[in-house]
Amino acid sequence: MNAYLQLLGVETLAVHLRQQVASATAIAEFLQTIPHVRAVHYSGLALAGDGHAALQSASQNELVRRDFPRGVGGVLSFEVDGGREQVARILDGTHVFAYVPNIGDARSLIVDPARITHREVSPQFRRMSGVGDNLIRLSIGLEDTADLIADLEQAIHGAY
């Protein structure tokens, strides 16, 4: 039964990946317009071609365009104003995103890496690697992009 289910998933993998990349790109672009979002970390912005990847180096953008012409995947992160309190409010405020430390699911997931995936790392080393208390990671699933954006918008707005 497991092999059968795996084969069913593989048959539609390309369609899933296209949807996840398109949604992740749209969400990254949207997050750049939110006042309380300090930075968006998603190399796929280089493929958008609309100047949103200005924070990345030109060589990074060229590598993305050359090596990932169909997109970089459905995982991105962003930093918000404030710290753990604001991050907790955003996480608690989402309704479509599930709070699960995983990636690559058909459902969209949200997590605060400083408290989950990097909790055993000292604060000094977390900061050195860019994982601050104000970082949120998203793994984009197959839900409607507009629903995901609306969920993030209302959660971020409610946190401030």
Rank of each mutant, 00 (worst) to 15 (best):
F68E: 08
R70G: 00
E29R: 14
S23N: 09
G9Q: 10
A39H: 11
S129P: 03
Y4R: 08
N134C: 08
E143V: 03
E79C: 07
L8A: 12
R84Y: 10
G74K: 00
R66D: 13
E29L: 14
A24P: 01
Q6C: 07
S57H: 12
A54N: 04
D147N: 09
A58K: 12
G71V: 02
V131G: 13
G82H: 03
D67L: 14
I27M: 03
L152K: 01
Q20A: 08
Q32L: 11
V37W: 04
E153I: 00
H95P: 02
Y4V: 10
I149D: 06
Q60F: 15
V111K: 03
L55G: 14
S59Y: 10
S122P: 03
I116S: 15
A114H: 12
S122H: 04
V37I: 07
P123M: 09
V10R: 12
L152N: 02
Y160W: 11
L7K: 09
V75Y: 00
E143W: 00
V64I: 14
R84N: 14
L5W: 05
Q6I: 12
D151R: 01
R126M: 05
L76T: 08
V131N: 09
G73T: 01
V64C: 05
A53H: 03
V15C: 05
T94I: 07
F78W: 06
R119H: 14
I136H: 09
A98F: 06
D147F: 00
G158L: 01
G104T: 02
L148S: 09
R115H: 14
G130P: 05
F68W: 07
D81Q: 12
L31H: 06
R115A: 15
E85C: 06
P101F: 02
Q20N: 07
V131R: 05
Q60A: 15
P35K: 04
A28V: 02
S43Y: 14
I116K: 11
Q86S: 15
I149F: 02
Y42S: 13
L152V: 06
D50A: 03
S122A: 12
H52N: 11
R137Y: 10
P69M: 07
T145H: 09
I34E: 11
E120K: 02
S139V: 03
A39I: 05
L138E: 11
T117V: 02
V87G: 01
N102G: 04
E79F: 04
R119P: 02
I136M: 04
A48H: 09
L91W: 00
I116L: 13
G82L: 01
A46R: 01
S77F: 03
F30V: 05
I110R: 01
R119N: 09
